[in-house]
Amino acid sequence: MSEPSAVGAAAARVGATLDGVFATVARVRDASARCLGEVRGAGRAPVSADLAALGPLLSAHLGPLVCGLGFIAAPGLLADAAWYLEWWQTGPGGAPSRLLRDLNPESSALYDYTGWEWFTGPASGAEKTVCGPYVDYFCSDEYVLTLSAPVRVGGAFAGVAAADVFARTFENEIVPALREIPAPAFVVNAPGRVMASNTARWTPGAAYRGRPGFAARPCGDLSLSLVTAG
């Protein structure tokens, strides 16, 4: 059975939008690996100040799509901080600002970031992880998607390169293509969270657990599905 062209076009739109963000994540991944590799090459252990070199790259790639961007160190990677992230986000006035956060898990139960999917995915070897939408009370208090990739130095996992996209930004990018589909249609992430939709019956944030009469097809090589009814 051939699928309607609008469905294929919407799936392609989802893939292209997220691939664009992953291209930015890949630049952060490569720059982080290079930065850490150079420090190792100089014969010393990296410290948090070494990662400040990423600042210009990170702030330059914030924009209409990406609202937060950075490198999150695997615990124990740095000699001077067990927990660290070099993270830039779009400030309230629209200008890039660095997130300053004391990340000692002893002082807050929220700061152990190793349990988040955007960290566990890359840590267990996934090259592309799409997490969310979820309420990000760790960084922004906003409803966001986080796309992440592993950073490896000398073959060993050193941390995560990641980018945040506001859920509303993603929705604005995708919904025009979904509206071309003449049936209820929505995009869900791997666990089943609705990411964008053309129907009020399935709003972003709803849980989709499969349903008779609904068909799911993948979006590119990402672990997301475009679900259509009827």
């Binding site: 807050s108 139960a109 929220l110 979820y134 309420v135 009370y137 208090d141 969270r193 972003p204 944030g205």
Partner: peptide, 28 residues
């Protein structure tokens, strides 16, 4: 102190699981 932090985190996680950023901010 550790227990209070976890108590706060638990309720924050419940709020975040609602998928509402506004309810989560209000919980905080």
């Amino acid at each position: 102190a550790g227990l209070r932090r976890l108590d706060g985190r638990f309720h924050l996680e419940v709020a975040a699981a609602s998928q509402s950023a506004r309810l989560t901010r209000e919980e905080i």
